[in-house]
Simulated assay, not measured.
Amino acid sequence: MDAADFYTGIVAELYGPLKSYSQDPEPYAAFLEQVGLPALELGCGDGEPLLELRRRGLDVDGVDSSADMLNRLRRQAAEEGLEVTVFHQRMEALRLPRRYRAIFLAGPTFNLLPEDNVALAALNGIRAHLVDGGTALVPLFTPEPTPADQIGRVRTATASDGAELRVSVVAEERDETARTQTTLLRYERHHGSDSTVEDRPWVLHWYTRERFEKLAASAGLAVSAVTDADGGPAPADGTGLLHFRLRAA
């Protein structure tokens, strides 16, 4: 097992809607069929669903802030003989050479932007890279507090080289006013006499529907639809996984 896959899997277990590392490509293929190409996937990671969309011949670029993840994507694409265009950039600081008819996130990684001003910078970047009349798809969710019995629980796995991998939630703080939840995760790798321990905060930032619509409007984007995880109309007070469709105003 790769350490990155194990740690990502634990984060997905804690925050189910963040499970973007194994995405069904069908909803995104349908979205692109509806709104058109070319397309850009924000937070493409190591290639799901971008690689599957490229296998289907769809003109989709990717961008991610992790050089390691993009290298894994490129290696997989090279093994399959796929041509891919991906960029190592943060979504709140986009500077890409072309504009797109569709921009989307495969999972609510937008919730990882820690503050409203950072989110606004990302929305400004989305607007700048959409053609007039283009559409963006932004999934969002409101995280639940980590259950008390999960604090301190250690998950373990064995890496391909025999190392023991461990991860646990050390502490958590939630600020309803700032709409942030900060979870301190401890990552450990033990192999013989060699041990590595790293504490890393995961900050999730959520939005009321009204607040997100105002941020989008400030960036020149209008919310054209809000749907639930099954694609149906979302209730006005919905707090689960919501998909916001944004049109370039």
Rank of each mutant, 00 (worst) to 15 (best):
A78W: 00
D61T: 07
P145V: 01
L123G: 05
R153M: 14
R153H: 15
N111P: 04
L105E: 00
E115H: 14
R75M: 03
L112T: 10
A67Q: 15
V138Q: 00
A119G: 04
E79F: 07
G125C: 08
R155V: 04
L112M: 14
S65N: 05
T135F: 03
A122R: 10
I126Q: 03
A77G: 09
T146S: 01
P97Q: 05
E80D: 12
F141Q: 02
L105C: 13
V118L: 05
R74K: 14
M69Y: 01
A67K: 14
R101L: 06
R153G: 05
A122V: 04
L120F: 04
P145H: 01
E80T: 03
A106L: 11
S66P: 10
P108F: 01
G81I: 02
R74V: 04
F104A: 05
V63L: 10
V84Y: 00
I151F: 12
A121T: 00
A102N: 11
A93V: 03
L137S: 11
F141V: 14
E83Q: 11
R98H: 04
G152D: 02
D149F: 13
R95S: 14
D132C: 01
G133M: 00
R153T: 11
A157L: 05
T156N: 07
H129T: 10
M91T: 00
G62N: 08
L140W: 11
M69Q: 13
V86K: 09
G125R: 08
N111H: 04
E144P: 04
M91K: 07
L70A: 06
I126H: 05
N124L: 12
T158L: 09
V138T: 00
Q89R: 15
R99K: 14
D64S: 10
A106Y: 02
R99V: 05
V131P: 04
R74P: 00
P143I: 06
Q89K: 14
E83N: 08
R95V: 07
Y100I: 06
R101F: 01
P114N: 06
V138L: 12
F110N: 05
A148T: 14
S65P: 10
D149T: 10
I126N: 09
M91I: 14
P145K: 06
D116P: 00
R155Y: 13
Q76P: 08
E144Y: 08
A102D: 03
A106S: 15
V154R: 13
T135E: 11
A106W: 04
D132R: 15
I126P: 02
N124A: 03
D116C: 02
P97E: 09
R98D: 01
T146E: 08
E79W: 09
R98Y: 01
V63Q: 13
Q76Y: 03
P147N: 09
V84S: 07
Y100W: 06
A136M: 12
V86W: 03
I151L: 15
L137K: 07
E79P: 01
V131F: 05
P145C: 10
A122G: 08
I103W: 03
M69R: 11
R98C: 00
T142V: 15
Q76L: 06
A122M: 03
A159S: 14
R127C: 08
R155C: 08
S65E: 06
L137E: 12
Q89H: 13
R153F: 12
L96W: 08
A67N: 05
Y100H: 06
P139V: 13
P143Q: 10
G62M: 03
R72Y: 02
